[in-house]
Design a protein around this nucleic acid. Sequence first.
DNA 1: ACTGACGATTTTGCATTCAAAATTTCCTAA
DNA 2: TTAGGAAATTTTGAATGCAAAATCGTCAGT
Lengths: 219, 219
Amino acid sequence: MLHTEVVVGIRAMLLEGDIPPGARIPERELCERLQISRTPLREALKVLAAEGLVQLLPNRGARAARLTDQDMRALFEVCQGLEALAGELACERISETQLAAIEAAHADMARHHRDRDLARYYRCNRFIHEAIVTAADNPVLNGLYETVTARIRRARYLTPMTEQRWALAMQEHEAILNMLKRRDGFGLAHILRTHLRHKREEVIRAGFAEDEQTTRAAG
Amino acid sequence: MLHTEVVVGIRAMLLEGDIPPGARIPERELCERLQISRTPLREALKVLAAEGLVQLLPNRGARAARLTDQDMRALFEVCQGLEALAGELACERISETQLAAIEAAHADMARHHRDRDLARYYRCNRFIHEAIVTAADNPVLNGLYETVTARIRRARYLTPMTEQRWALAMQEHEAILNMLKRRDGFGLAHILRTHLRHKREEVIRAGFAEDEQTTRAAG
DNA sequence: ACTGACGATTTTGCATTCAAAATTTCCTAA
DNA sequence: TTAGGAAATTTTGAATGCAAAATCGTCAGT
């Protein structure tokens, strides 16, 4: 088992919520589960800590990072910036093939909206946002987008939407597609920022932060 | 010696050029130099690899990352995006104290420009850019800005400037300060993007990339 | 002389081991 | 009965040891 695979494996557990936010990460147990020794596991934890998925307390082990409202705000703001940049660059660089793929995904998404199929809707939604970043053709941007979006993915793609909000999101996506087709980088950046700002407000209103207040409320 | 210190130490060596780009990193030697064993060193190398400062080849050790023109372009583009975002947020959140500090640094910088003292000029320059990011009051943005700018720092703050280009940069900084004072986030984002685009063109024209072509040319 | 392959040496990756720190348990005293 | 503290246990952080892979050096064959 390669080092990268260990990182990927644990990252997946964290993102799937397999290891819940705030939970302690017992080295021993994970070692047995992954059939590796502590050395590579600890290397992986250090990397994940650098990514912000894991919190490392000196002499007191690791815990799955927990997102506060403040973290959520910060992450969404950065995500806005990154997607806006991606939009601008994508308008300069996107190929017809890439654009066609996004257009197809958009059509699917509209259908899923009509069917009120939120899961499939979100899948298309995510594909479109990621395709725009890919079209920006900037590996550094891609990498940062990956790590930032990973941390807010559950909030972003699990939060339920009201009818009204969902309709607005669809409208925004119509605009996104239009701007892309017109290669209007400036306009695309603007609508992407707005779109994400709305999503953030929605997520925070839904109280998706992973504060211990949740625990407190439950206890 | 704490784990973080090892990472910081090696990172410093890489950024200072103490370990030159493309150079192999012999574990044994660094261990002796830092008086630590291989375990913490290897953990640090994995973290630095995640940051992009080190390239890890399976079974073939680590080398200091080397920036191609493509990397340079990608990094500067992302840096533009991050500073533009920082500018917008800073206009909403900057305190009078922070603004005053930037204004003072700007005055110093103008003086160093008149004196043609490039080193001190760059020091003020860097302070101002970092202060804007700090004023954005977004820890995630701050962290990403740190890692991205670290990789291009040498190119950014060592490239010599022509009289003409230097004068233009000063003009741009006048505009930056004005936008900040007027809390014009939109305008600030714009001028920051332009400013950094100019810097990037200058750096790439100066051939600051760390391709092996340099080595080839030398050999 | 040059190419290619074989063995020796070095280097990497990981498991194990050991000391220090933290946590838990249990006992004592108020 | 409960609070405080000491011993035992667990857990962390780092050094060492070992097997596998890669690199280097040498030598045989062309």
